[in-house]
Design a binder for these strands. Structure first.
Lengths: 322, 322
DNA sequence: GGTTGACCTGCAATCGATGTCATAAATTAT
DNA sequence: ATAATTTATGACATCGATTGCAGGTCAACC
């Protein structure tokens, strides 16, 4: 439509002068500046960002790669986008559905300069496949990992899980069942350590209940209740990997007429939206702020400054299920 | 990095030939084609999308404008992004926080050719402010509205609400309380009509219970329960604007020791994730598919074809609260 | 043998901005 | 009065691709 040449013509100056007038850089006489600005106003000029991106080699656009938009991912996304917009960046979404080839597409988008940087929320690909792409722009991960070129903004869940265990102990529960998430995640390892330390501290037998791994969905929680009803004495309390599993346990228990926390207690993790509706005791996970930190790291790398990260802490939200 | 000129040089041809070889358009001898492809492979060539966008004036990037990233918005977003990626488009997110100036930024992004089109999920701005921007690219709305240049993919909630009312009637509830959403929304009007028709059909007195408007949050639901406990005989059933309100009512009732549906029934709307956890009877709203339709409309306009839209229907999901 | 048309290739323009450079006028310093 | 500096401006190259056009070869056809 109306480009800068057109504006220059209308104002009776060269494109260079028009550019200077509009950007405010370099020398321009007051008079011509006025004319250019007037022409820009009149003919509704807006710079073409693609031209700028080509020229500068940068887009002020970041890519966010996530498998889907469930609860905590959308929290993270919201926090990330807000932080980015605040600083004048824009965010492009890549949804992978746990498909590695889709993850590759996001990496290619970085290579083709469609985005300046990438944040991986959760991913499937092997690290050695992702790593070479850092030469095209910063890559940050939410998922916990160890790599010298790809920082991750994870929080070690040892502390958070210990919070849950201590709370259950304080409430008088002794036979505690661990409901862990994916066994491959480093956080599961942290939680296992936390439990071991917890048992040592209070002289409890770590083997009093079996632990469970790879639990993640509401359905897992529902099944778990049934498993226990059919296989021996139900534990005093469950410390779970996330609120979804916890919610599944709580709602299934209610359906079966069991009372919570009298028949058994449940502590969730994450403090998602619906935890409040279910009156679920849980550990609050500051996903929002963490997303802000992810952005800060990216921005630090892009702008070669050193932005401070917000220190984050888990905290207990006590409700009615413990 | 490595651009097409570099590849051309390495392959011993001109950039034009290299371009033709890479794109497969126009005549290129087999031999040179091989050489170009080999060079591209060897030197890890990837086209700069910004250059392409500048040249073609199109980005294959769409903007999605939403106030925040809560439940149903993220469902819509997920559906939209999946549909877009399927067709080779990418989606950039604009989160407004109900701030009109942020909505304007999204519109400006369209004008500056950062995106080819926009979809507004929910917005605050007046239509006459948005409308002029359609000359820069298609704009579609999820929020229901009437405008000849801005199509909206709303579903008239008359049918869905009637489904809820009929269900409550069939279950034997007669004193039904309407819990409506924002009074400014056209959908609220549709629901009021549905209720009027419903009462006429069954010879019920529409004024048997007061109706409520501008309910939207969990907290509204919680307050509503208290209001009724303090102000007269509680209705047999509540037909609500969305699951959040319904969830607030259900969870507050449980907290207060009331039994559902014996003391009162509640029917939600949307069938969000957590409805299952709360065993909430609700009306399923096919947000996913609707987002797909929103994309189809945009694509039709961009590519000047005429893609079919998927016909959508509400349906009842009966659970334990009615 | 000359015309036609398919095939192949590279030059140069283009998309819309920025920025370097040369040139020149106006101003200040010496 | 002259040198040095600041101010002002436009021509032109550049970012990285695509594409119209002109010029060329070569086989086929009449």
């Amino acid at each position: 439509m109306t480009n800068i040449k057109e504006i220059a013509r209308r104002a009776g100056v060269s494109p260079s002068t028009a550019s200077r007038a509009l950007s405010g850089k370099g020398y321009v006489s007051e008079e011509k500046k006025r004319k250019v600005l007037a022409a820009a106003e009149e003919f509704d000029y807006a710079p073409n960002l693609n031209a700028l991106s080509l020229k500068t080699g940068t887009t002020r656009r970041l890519g966010l790669v996530a498998p889907e938009f469930a609860e905590s991912v959308s929290l993270f996304t919201g926090g990330f986008v807000r932080a980015a917009e605040e600083a004048g960046y824009t965010v492009t979404l890549f949804i992978t559905g746990y498909d590695k080839s889709k993850e590759l597409e996001a990496l290619e988008a970085l290579r083709r300069k469609q985005v300046d940087a990438l944040v991986f929320v959760l991913f499937q690909s092997e690290l050695p496949l992702i790593a070479p792409y850092v030469k095209y722009g910063p890559i940050v991960s939410w998922q916990r990992l160890v790599h010298e070129r790809i920082p991750s903004v994870f929080m070690d869940q040892y502390d958070g899980y210990m919070l849950a265990l201590e709370h259950l102990y304080a409430k008088g529960y002794r036979r505690i069942c661990n409901v862990y998430g994916a066994s491959t995640r480093l956080n599961t390892q942290s939680r296992i350590e936390a439990f071991a330390d917890f048992c040592r501290k209070y002289g409890l037998d770590p083997g009093v209940c079996p632990s469970f791994q790879n639990m993640g969905d509401t359905e897992d929680g529902e099944r778990l209740v049934h498993w226990w009803l059919e296989n021996g004495r139900i534990p005093d309390a469950f410390a779970t990997t996330n609120d979804r599993v916890a919610a599944g346990m709580v709602s299934e228990a209610r359906r079966l007429g069991l009372r919570i926390p009298e028949d058994f207690a449940v502590c969730g993790f994450d403090n998602l939206d619906f935890a409040h509706m279910l009156d679920l005791t849980t550990i609050h996970y500051p996903v929002d702020e963490q997303a802000g930190n992810a952005f800060a790291i990216i921005r630090s790398q892009i702008e070669e400054t050193d932005l401070p990260l917000k220190p984050l802490k888990f905290h207990l939200v006590e409700r009615a299920t413990t």
